[in-house]
């Protein structure tokens, strides 16, 4: 071994490279995790195919074709599963296993860490949209896409759920986070007006549309119907501010 192998040459990588590295790493870990993949793709796919093909038998009927109503809802579910459940579980275990502590003494700043996490969420969501959107199209979905509706709705929905996910992950133990994140996912899937429109919940619909799940579901249905869902986006933005501020205030790194 020649002398000077370990001669000091410290320095931080350029910020962009750090963020890309972090986003890439988190994406790979997420896609490699079977349970998270189940939540991200398999369950939404089952919900979509199952509900569309069995709509008549289970008494689902809407003004518009069933697949046109359900596909945007399933895309909203996909955003929720990734930005809330997957993020919370992954971050909870990062706290538990000292990953955040470890990264705390690298050049990676907290801002770059968060940017990396958001990057990973958006990459995974894009993959989900490709898979689930294709499935919808195969089932006969004919969307009328409003780009200025869809993009902000997805971003705001991601921000709202990510803030809440980080709040759960940063305050509960890893096991409790795992349980809570899955439970909330199931409850919102069933009763949160994500997949089914708020109107399907009768009187309860007036309440659930103010939940982040209801707001995102309604926003996606509107945005894939050529509209710009201003009210729902405002609701999501409010949740993002509340969740983000609470997470920033109460998140414990260790």
């Amino acid at each position: 071994m020649s002398a000077g192998t370990f001669a000091p040459a410290p320095g931080a990588a350029p910020l962009a490279r750090q963020v890309l590295a972090q986003a890439g790493m988190e994406t790979r870990l997420l896609l490699r995790n079977g349970e998270q993949l189940l939540l991200a793709v398999v369950i939404p796919l089952i919900v979509l195919v199952g509900a569309v093909s069995a709509a008549d038998r289970i008494g689902l009927s809407f003004d518009d074709p069933t697949v046109d109503v359900l596909t945007p809802g399933v895309l909203a579910l996909a955003v929720m599963s990734t930005a809330f459940t997957s993020l919370a579980i992954a971050t909870g275990f990062e706290r538990r296993y000292g990953v955040l502590k470890r990264l705390g003494t690298t050049p990676l700043s907290r801002g770059a860490l968060l940017a990396g996490k958001v990057g990973a969420l958006l990459i995974v969501e894009l993959l989900q949209f490709v898979v689930l959107g294709s499935a919808g199209l195969l089932l006969g979905w004919s969307p009328d896409v409003s780009v200025v509706g869809v993009v902000p709705a997805v971003l705001l929905g991601t921000a709202a759920f990510a803030g809440l996910g980080m709040l759960v992950a940063g305050t509960l133990r890893a096991e409790a986070t795992l349980a809570a994140a899955n439970l909330v996912y199931l409850l919102l899937l069933a009763g949160g007006a994500v997949v089914l429109p708020a109107s399907a919940y009768g009187g309860l619909g007036d309440v659930v549309q103010w939940l982040p799940s209801g707001a995102l579901g309604e926003a996606m249905r509107a945005a894939f119907n050529g509209e710009v869902p201003a009210v729902e986006m405002a609701v999501l933005a409010s949740w993002a501010v509340v969740g983000g501020a609470a997470a920033a205030r109460w998140f414990k790194w260790e």
Binding site: A9, P10, G11, A12, A13, P14, Q18, A21, P107
Partner: peptide
């Protein structure tokens, strides 16, 4: 991954 966070 740790290596990528550093310059050299």
């Amino acid at each position: 991954h740790l290596a990528r966070l550093h310059a050299d």
